Computed example of a mutant assay.
Amino acid sequence: MKTSIIVQNLKCGGCANTITSKLSEINNVLDLKIDIDESKVSFNYKNEVDVLAVKDKLKTLGYPSIEDINSLTSKAKSFVSCAIGKF
């Protein structure tokens, strides 16, 4: 199955690199695509547990879904994730 998640704090290629790297580590998450302009993370998955794992990982990295609160902590985490993704 295929889904997309609109995330907050996605600003550049560094962010996209970090998201791609970390989400690729999750089993059953395939064909990952990041659309920076639309702040969208799209992927194929096998079951709902996979989607929840992706949402949790995104939130941990500082890219909460649009339904979640975008706290100052999330913004700071995304800044660090972005910087790491640029290297």
Rank of each mutant, 00 (worst) to 15 (best):
M1A: 12
K2M: 04
T3S: 05
T3M: 12
T3C: 14
T3K: 10
S4M: 05
V7L: 02
V7R: 02
Q8D: 12
N9S: 05
N9M: 00
N9H: 05
L10C: 06
L10H: 06
K11T: 13
K11A: 10
C12I: 02
C12K: 09
G13P: 09
G13A: 00
G13D: 11
G14E: 14
A16N: 13
N17S: 11
N17L: 03
N17F: 04
T18H: 13
I19D: 01
I19G: 00
I19M: 07
T20R: 11
T20V: 06
L23E: 13
L23I: 01
L23D: 07
E25C: 02
E25Y: 08
I26N: 00
N27F: 11
N28Q: 13
N28E: 15
V29L: 03
D31F: 09
L32G: 04
K33R: 11
I34M: 01
I34R: 01
D35C: 00
I36G: 05
E38D: 14
E38L: 06
K40V: 07
V41W: 04
N44T: 03
N44G: 08
N44Q: 12
Y45D: 03
N47S: 07
V49Q: 14
D50N: 04
V51R: 02
V51I: 15
K55S: 07
K55I: 02
K55W: 04
D56T: 14
D56H: 05
K59T: 12
T60Y: 08
L61C: 04
G62L: 10
P64G: 07
P64H: 12
S65D: 15
S65L: 05
I66D: 15
D68Q: 15
I69H: 10
L72A: 07
L72T: 14
T73I: 11
K75L: 00
K75Q: 15
A76C: 01
K77F: 10
F79Y: 12
F79M: 14
F79V: 06
S81N: 03
C82E: 03
C82R: 02
C82F: 00
A83E: 15
I84C: 03
G85M: 00
G85L: 00
G85R: 00
G85C: 08
F87T: 08
